[in-house]
Amino acid sequence: MTRLSPDFVEEMKRYSHDTALACFNCGTCTAICPLIDEHFPRRMIRYVQIGAKDRILENAPELWKCLHCGLCTQTCPREANPGEIILGLKRMVVAHWRKS
C-alpha cells in the first residue's frame, strides 16, 4: 500500500516547476497525448501529487516515451504544465540513477 508522502512535492521543486497540485485529474493531457499510452501522463502527475516516488521509479521507462510535443501543456485547463512535470521527473529519475 502506498503511503501519501507530501514531502515529495518539495523534493520535486529541485527538478521542475511546482505545478503538480494544480492538476484536478481531468485527464485532458492523456486524451490529447499522441502516444495514446494508457493513463500517460496523467498517472505520473498523480504519483507526484500523492508523493508515490517508488511507483514513479518503478515505471520510469514510461517517461522516455514522451515526445515533448507540448500538447498537454497547451490544453491543460488548470495550467499545471504536465509537459514540464514529465521533464522534471526525467531529471529526478536520472539524478537517482546517478546516486545509485
Binding site: T2, H39, R46, I50
Partner: peptide, 16 residues
C-alpha cells in the same frame, strides 16, 4: 486513513 482512490486508478492509499 485507508482509501481506495479512483484518482490513482483504484490503488489503495494510506493517508497519515
Amino acid at each position: 486513513v485507508k482509501v481506495t482512490d479512483t484518482l490513482t486508478f483504484g490503488e489503495t492509499l494510506e493517508v497519515p
